[in-house]
């Protein structure tokens, strides 16, 4: 596949998504002229082959790095190949791909450095589990209290960023729930960040990685790394 650096690239981190990734990549390829990059985070199923057959560029990580490390691999690819805009979506079909132009438009118009799709703006269809909703509320409070951003959906993994953030995230991207931590990084960079309404659905395939115990563990861990990112120095 010949990459075209002027067009946006859609980055999809995928771990054991063989059942949903093929259809997702095919609909993206049919619907948009953008390159589609699947970062296979050490899956043991046919995620990599399925994505490749559907027409995606595939990066195979030799071991499971977790969501942050996988997405960062995509940013590194975009940085090295000279892409100016990245759209990042989930590989399990939770994000409505018809809404991609909504997160892209403000970036392409130069009005924002980052555009984050929120499932809570506009007509909300989203219903999540109790620990997930609680976590979202908690992180929303954290982000709103510490940055100037008005955030409704701090854990949204449906977003677009421009070249400046691609380069920064290639060097500094958090590991767990990177989206929450990313807010403090964007705040430190004085990035122009806005939210737009997008549609998200409950998972159709596979299991969500979130259980009550892990939710608490991640809340503590993310809060810690968030706090440290407030006082850390970035060279």
């Amino acid at each position: 596949m010949i990459t075209q650096p002027d067009t946006p690239i859609v980055i999809i981190p995928a771990y054991q998504e063989e059942r949903s990734i093929g259809d997702l990549v095919r609909s993206l390829r049919e619907r948009y002229p953008y390159d589609v990059l699947v970062v296979n985070d050490g899956s043991t199923d046919r995620t990599s082959e399925t994505a490749r057959e559907a027409g995606a560029i595939v990066l195979d990580l030799p071991c499971n790095l977790g969501i942050g490390g996988a997405v960062q691999t995509g940013f590194l690819y975009a940085r090295d190949r000279g892409y100016d805009v990245v759209v990042r979506i989930d590989g399990d079909g939770q994000h409505e791909i018809e809404d991609i132009p909504k997160v892209l438009e403000p970036i392409l118009a130069g009005r924002a450095d980052a555009v984050i799709g929120s499932r809570f703006l506009g007509e909300a269809e989203y219903r999540g589990s109790i620990p997930r909703i609680f976590g979202i509320r908690f992180f929303r409070l954290l982000v709103n209290l510490t940055t100037g951003y008005r955030v409704t959906d701090p854990t949204s993994g449906f977003f677009a960023i421009n070249r400046r953030l691609i380069e920064f995230y290639s060097d500094h991207y958090p590991s767990d729930y990177p989206e929450v931590d990313a807010y403090i990084l964007m705040h430190r960079l004085k990035a122009r960040t806005i939210e737009v309404p997008v549609r998200m659905y409950d998972r159709t395939e596979g299991k969500s990685s979130i259980t009550a115990f892990r939710a608490v563990y991640y809340m503590v861990k993310v809060t810690l790394s968030y706090t440290i990112n407030c006082i850390r120095r970035f060279e």
């Binding site: 970062v39 990066l59 071991c63 790095l65």
Partner: peptide, 17 residues
């Protein structure tokens, strides 16, 4: 380890292309 895994994935995709 993370950096090496990432570099390896990027290298492999470059070689395949």
């Amino acid at each position: 380890n993370k950096k090496m895994a990432q570099e390896l994935a990027l290298l492999k995709s470059g070689n395949e292309a």
